[in-house]
Design a protein around this nucleic acid. Structure first.
Length: 545
DNA sequence: AAAAAAT
C-alpha cells in the first residue's frame, strides 16, 4: 500500500484535476449551431465517396482496405472528418450502422503522434457490456495492425493481474466497462488525467443500466481539454442533458435506422400453452419446420434461469445449441459467442445481453421464447435478423398470460403481427386444462421409467405429446452415415458447451439472501432451532412470503 | 415476470 502511494506520487501532477469537480468548463455552444446532419440518403448523394477521401492516415487506410472495405457508411462519412479535426462528435446511430469504425479509425490516426505513459492511458472508450467492450478491442486490433498500439481491456469477470500489467506498460487505448474501470482507479492503478480522447458508446443503454452516475464521475476525472465522441441510438432527455454537460460544441451526426424492420423481417406469433414444456415443444417444432432455411438463430428468454433451462433442454434433444447470459462466467460467454460467430453453433439461447449491440452477423431467425416485458426489447431482439438487406424471420411464442405484453409490442411497433397458425383462441383446450392436475402428481407415462441420468431434477417432460425421444430414434435409424456423423459432432460440441455452463451461478441462489447470508433450507422449515423435537405447533405454521 | 455491471 505504502509502495503504491510512493509510486503514484512519482507521477507528474498525480492529484490535480480529479479532485477539482469539473473546473471552469469552456463555454458551450448549442449543438444545433454546428449541426451537420447526415442521413442515409447522403450515400446516394455522394455515391463515390471512399475511405480515402476522409483524411485517415495511410496506415489506417491500408488496414481498412485489407479488411475489405472501400465505402464508408453514412455515420463514418459524417463523423470521421470531424473526429480527425479534434472536434467533439455527437453520433446518433444504432448498431449495424458502422458506428464502431466511425470512432476507431480516426482515433488510431490521431494516436500516431505521441506515446503512452505508465498508468496514464491516452484514450478511453466506455462500453455498457463486456461483450461490446471486447468487440471494440477486436476492431482496434483489426484496424491497428500497422501500428504498435498498446490496448488494454478492463472488464469484470476476469483477473486484475493482466489488466494491471497492461496499464503499467502504458495504454494507448483503454476500453472499459464502468464498474471495472472505477475499481482499477480506486486501487490507484490508473490515472485518467492523460486521456485525450474519450468515447462514450451506447449512452442510452448505459442509462437503462443505471450507469449514468458512473459515467458522470468518470467524465469529471478527465481533463476538459479532451475530445469527446459520444454515441447513442436514441436521445432521451437524460442523455441530452449529459451531452450538454460533457460535450463542447459537438458536431451532430445522425443517421437513419439501418433498415426498417417491417420490410426485411417476417414476423409471426405462435400460440402455445403456458407451461414451459409446451413452449419448448412449440419451439422445437418451429425449428424443425424451418429446416435448412434456418442457418442460425438466437432464441431470447426473459430470464437467465430460463436461458439455462432451455439450453439444457435443446441440448438434450440434440439441437446444436449454446447459451449466453450475464451470470455465466466470462470464459463461457466468450466461447459461446465465438462458436456462434464462427458457425460452429446454430442456436444461441440468450437473455437480453444479446438483444442489442453485439455484432452477430446475419442471423436467419430470431425466436422469442418469451414475449419481452418491455416492448422496446422486442424491437431490439428482432433487429438481430434481417440485417444488411437480408431477409429474416422472427417468431414469438405467445401464451395466454402474455396478452398484456403483446399489446404493448403491437402498440409500439404500430402494427399487428400475424399469427402463424391461428391465435390463442384456437389453442386446443386440453393443452391448458390438462396440465394443472398433472402437475405435482407425476405423470402416468413417467412411472417406472428412470431418468437417463440419475439425480437430474429438471422439469423437462420426457414424454410430451409429440414423443420427441422416440421420433429421434427413428430419425437416427433412417439417417445415412453422413447425417449420423453430423449428429455425433453436434453431440460432442454440445457436451463441451454444457461443460462450460456454470452449474451454479445461473441458478438464483434461493438459500441465500442478497448479502450471501444463508436462509434456512426448505427442510429446515419444520425444525425450529433450540427446541429439539418438541416444537410448539404454532411455531411450525408456515408464513406465506 | 427482467437484464445488465464491481466484489
Amino acid at each position: 500500500m505504502a509502495l503504491q502511494l510512493v509510486r503514484a506520487c512519482s507521477i507528474p501532477c498525480p492529484f490535480v484535476p480529479w479532485n477539482d469537480p469539473a473546473p471552469t468548463i469552456a463555454p458551450r455552444h448549442e449543438p444545433a449551431k454546428t449541426h451537420a446532419n447526415v442521413s442515409s440518403d447522403d450515400t446516394i448523394v455522394q455515391p463515390d465517396l471512399t475511405f480515402a477521401d476522409l483524411g485517415l492516415s495511410d496506415k489506417v487506410l491500408s488496414a481498412v482496405t485489407d479488411a475489405g472495405y472501400t465505402k464508408p457508411t453514412p455515420i463514418q462519412a459524417g463523423a470521421i472528418p470531424h473526429a480527425l479535426q479534434g472536434k467533439d462528435v455527437l453520433g446518433i446511430a444504432q448498431t449495424g450502422t458502422g458506428k464502431t469504425a466511425a470512432f476507431v479509425l480516426p482515433m488510431i490516426t490521431r494516436l500516431e503522434k505521441g506515446r503512452a505513459r505508465a498508468r496514464m492511458p491516452r484514450t478511453l472508450i466506455l462500453e455498457p457490456t463486456r461483450e461490446l467492450a471486447a468487440q471494440v478491442e477486436e476492431n482496434f486490433v483489426r484496424y491497428g495492425k500497422n501500428h504498435k498500439l498498446n490496448i488494454a481491456l478492463l472488464i469484470g469477470g476476469v483477473s486484475f493481474d493482466e489488466q494491471e500489467r497492461k496499464l503499467e506498460r502504458g495504454a494507448d487505448v483503454l476500453i472499459a466497462t464502468p464498474g471495472r474501470l472505477l475499481d482499477h482507479r480506486e486501487r490507484g492503478k490508473l490515472l485518467l488525467t492523460g486521456v485525450d480522447i474519450l468515447v462514450i458508446d451506447e449512452a442510452d443503454r448505459m442509462l437503462d443500466m443505471g450507469f449514468i452516475p458512473d459515467i458522470e464521475r468518470i467524465c469529471e476525472m478527465i481533463p476538459f481539454t479532451r475530445q469527446t465522441l459520444f454515441f447513442s441510438a436514441t436521445m432521451p432527455p437524460e442523455i441530452t442533458k449529459l451531452t450538454e454537460k460533457f460535450l463542447q460544441a459537438p458536431v451532430r451526426v445522425e443517421v437513419a435506422k439501418p433498415s426498417s424492420t417491417a420490410t426485411t423481417v417476417t414476423q409471426r406469433l405462435v400460440k402455445s400453452g403456458s407451461k414451459s414444456w409446451d413452449k419448448r415443444a412449440v419451439l422445437r417444432k418451429l425449428i424443425e419446420d424451418e429446416g435448412d432455411s434456418l442457418t442460425n438463430a438466437i432464441i431470447f428468454c426473459n430470464r437467465k434461469v430460463d436461458v439455462s433451462e432451455l439450453f439444457r433442454s435443446l441440448v438434450k434433444h440434440d439441437f446444436d445449441a449454446g447459451a449466453l447470459h450475464g451470470d455465466m462466467d466470462q470464459r463461457a460467454r466468450m466461447a459461446m459467442l465465438d462458436g456462434f460467430r464462427n458457425n460452429k453453433l446454430r442456436l444461441l439461447v440468450a437473455s437480453d445481453v444479446a438483444a442489442r449491440g453485439l455484432d452477430i452477423p446475419a442471423v436467419s431467425h430470431v425466436f422469442n421464447f418469451d414475449v419481452p416485458i418491455h416492448a422496446e426489447d422486442y424491437v431490439h431482439r428482432i433487429g438481430r435478423t434481417g440485417r444488411a438487406g437480408r431477409s429474416g424471420k422472427a417468431f414469438t411464442i405467445v401464451t395466454k398470460s402474455d396478452n398484456k405484453y403483446l399489446d404493448a409490442v403491437e402498440k409500439l411497433t404500430g402494427q399487428s403481427i400475424e399469427w402463424l397458425d391461428g391465435d390463442l383462441s384456437t389453442l386446443s383446450p386440453e393443452v391448458e386444462s390438462d396440465e394443472a392436475p398433472r402437475r405435482g402428481r407425476g405423470r402416468p407415462e413417467r412411472k417406472g421409467r428412470g431418468r437417463e441420468r440419475g439425480g437430474e431434477r429438471t422439469r423437462e417432460t420426457p414424454v410430451a405429446k409429440t414423443t420427441p425421444a422416440d421420433e429421434r430414434e427413428d430419425v437416427v435409424e433412417a439417417a445415412p452415415a453422413e447425417r449420423r456423423e453430423r449428429r455425433e459432432a453436434i453431440r460432442q460440441g454440445n457436451a463441451e458447451r454444457e461443460r462450460q455452463m456454470p452449474n451454479r451461478p445461473e441458478q438464483p441462489r434461493r438459500d441465500r439472501d442478497d448479502r450471501g447470508r444463508r436462509y434456512r433450507d426448505q427442510d429446515d422449515v419444520n425444525t425450529v432451532v433450540g427446541f429439539g423435537d418438541d416444537v410448539p405447533a404454532f411455531m411450525k405454521i408456515a408464513v406465506p412470503v
